[in-house]
Design a protein around this nucleic acid. Sequence first.
DNA 1: ACGCAAATGTTATAACGTAACAAAGTCGCC
DNA 2: GGCGACTTTGTTACGTTATAACATTTGCGT
Lengths: 147, 147
Amino acid sequence: MEHPNKAEAHHTHDHAGAKNELTRNERLVHTVLEGADGPLGAYAILDAVREAGMRSPPQVYRALERLQQRGLAHRIERLNAFVACRRDECDGTATIFAICENCGCAREFADGTFDGFVTDWMRDNSFAMRLSRCELVGLCLACQPPS
Amino acid sequence: MEHPNKAEAHHTHDHAGAKNELTRNERLVHTVLEGADGPLGAYAILDAVREAGMRSPPQVYRALERLQQRGLAHRIERLNAFVACRRDECDGTATIFAICENCGCAREFADGTFDGFVTDWMRDNSFAMRLSRCELVGLCLACQPPS
DNA sequence: ACGCAAATGTTATAACGTAACAAAGTCGCC
DNA sequence: GGCGACTTTGTTACGTTATAACATTTGCGT
Ligand SMILES: [Zn+2]
Ligand SMILES: [Zn+2]
Ligand SMILES: [Zn+2]
Ligand SMILES: [Zn+2]
């Protein structure tokens, strides 16, 4: 049983500042994610940046990894896809997504009650948490059948 | 943007009852998961059941899908791996895992505070939830460096 | 110019998952 | 028993997602 994904959550500066420190490839990928209307798979991103000069999966995955470290992008585990973070204060350690099964939209938010639950649980159970991920799956308002 | 994973959460009977309704392949896969000391990837499961006669990935994935529907197994998104559920009342709609990055163990639990947060949020935001998944990532007690 | 570290580029391959179709088992019904 | 409908199983072949390993270039301090 071995493990991946040391990718997330280091720095805690604000997004505006972090965006000015991006390398060329990071900026390319981030721009694509910001312009997308929903989560994008790594290979969809690759297609979008190919003409700008990025041609192979490792280039995209590396950029994504660093964007996640800076809290500028998140991976949605359930979809194997990535989104740009639009919450300025977000450091990527406690994100929640509401994912629509019909249109594929993924709305990111944070919640104090959730944070409290997580904090309490890790204290009570001696678990040294590095980050938490919560994914709510269902239908967004626009996709629900008329009442 | 298209979507998968209609696999979860139908029936709500208890596990003991559900286990007696398993087909041959479902039972094989479930037995392997129950005997494992942590999450297993689909191909690891395949290796474990090969001598019993299951020889191809679709067979394993089909069994896993039906075990998940019955609440007898869960997929851990972050690990692309599967575990047997050990909570008798679990229907798979609101599971929480604490995942250790060092030893790979995944402890499943439920929590009333979390359920309340989820219920409130979906009411306040008109989101028709089908299921929720929460994955806490860090170090389990056994894997934490000595204080 | 030289040395070093970070970033980028490239190839090949590993790991995870599914579509599509064929064959065999199960069960009720005439 | 024979037939039809449905479920389960078996098999091939492929699609999608992710990473290992190594080469090259870039930026920068000395
Ligand atoms: Zn965020
Ligand atoms: Zn929707
Ligand atoms: Zn469970
Ligand atoms: Zn551990």
